[in-house]
Design a protein around this nucleic acid. Structure first.
Length: 289
DNA sequence: AAGTTGCGCAACCGCGTGCCC
DNA sequence: CGGGCACGCGGTTGCGCAACT
């Protein structure tokens, strides 16, 4: 595949946008929308590449952009979600969705997933805040807290389980387990992940972890309806969606084709939190809720 | 007051992916 | 089926400004 040449052609401007350029872009999009970013600058009379126009609009000019400092709650949300989702490509393994009636996967990437939870904030802004403020804050927090874990896989998996459920109980997160740790667990344990399957007496018991086997897929994919099925042993959450069945083998081979050796997030709390707390997901997957 | 350093943020870059032909 | 195009993403850069020496 040949890459389209980057817009460095003669006459195309780079660097900071002027108020005049902003106004031209706003006026044009308000009138005609932004169906084709590549064609837009030419039609609007801007000496910019489409990519630059898109970025400027999405990250700065959009009317629903929220300005000003991040609140403590927003920062906490970012930290919690970042812990939960990780920031390495491997973390994508935990963000795969099989939407009902469709044979493709949803892949929601980390910063945009976080942005979806913070109305008016852009992924770029969140990324910047993470790199400039929150990473430092987290590091300081980690230095204050003594390391209590050794680095056995079992501990990692346990911590992961807790982080997966951490959206509702952020204080329980294990700060000694980093996102990359999470990713390594996910990838190295491909198709051999651990899952909390025990119908434990206490729903907060995250230590009951067993090796995943084919039964897990049976649980995840409802036999009748396929789509996604999340079943909690306490009936706290149970959902089945879609009408386009795939066998477990088909599902796994699709997954392997997409990213060899990958696995779904295997923690029911993780899915529970995603589906019940992320409005965007609710819209994407209405049949599930 | 002038020079240096550090920080924050807007913008850019390269890559992966989906869609269309 | 493969090539080309458009889009969206994460990572990175670089400018402007404030704080510090």
């Amino acid at each position: 595949m040949v890459r389209a040449p980057c817009c460095e052609k003669m006459g195309l401007k780079k660097g900071p946008w002027t108020p005049e350029e902003d106004q031209i872009l706003i006026n044009y999009i308000q009138l005609y929308g932004h169906g084709n970013w590549r064609a837009l600058p030419k039609q609007a009379g801007l000496l910019r590449c489409g990519k630059s126009c898109r970025l400027r609009w999405i990250n700065y000019l959009r009317p629903d952009i929220k300005r000003g400092n991040f609140t403590r709650e927003e920062e906490d949300t970012i930290i919690n979600l970042h812990e939960m989702l990780g920031n390495s490509p491997l973390a994508l393994d935990r963000l795969l969705f099989y939407p009902p009636g469709d044979c493709s996967f949803f892949v929601l990437t980390v910063w945009s997933a976080i942005a979806a939870r913070l109305p008016g904030r852009t992924d770029n802004e969140i990324k910047n805040v993470w790199h400039t403020h929150l990473k430092k804050r987290l590091k300081q927090k980690q230095q204050q807290e003594p390391v209590i874990n050794n680095h056995s896989n079992a501990n990692h998996v346990t911590a992961r389980s807790e982080i997966c459920s951490g959206a509702s109980t952020p204080d329980r997160q294990d700060s000694t387990t980093t996102s990359s740790d999470m990713s390594s667990v996910t990838s190295s344990a491909a198709n051999n992940a651990c899952v909390k399957t025990e119908p434990s007496s206490s729903e907060n018991n995250h230590d009951s972890l067993v090796e995943i086997d084919e039964n897990f897929w049976t649980e995840v994919l409802s036999a009748e309806n396929s789509g996604i099925s999340i079943e909690d042993s306490n009936d706290r959450f149970s959902a089945v969606g879609g009408a386009d069945p795939l066998s477990i083998v088909e599902f796994q081979s699709s997954l392997d084709a997409f990213r060899p050796g990958s696995t779904l997030c295997d923690n029911t709390d993780f899915w529970f939190n995603l589906f019940t707390k992320a409005g965007d997901f609710s819209e994407m997957l209405p049949e599930i809720l």
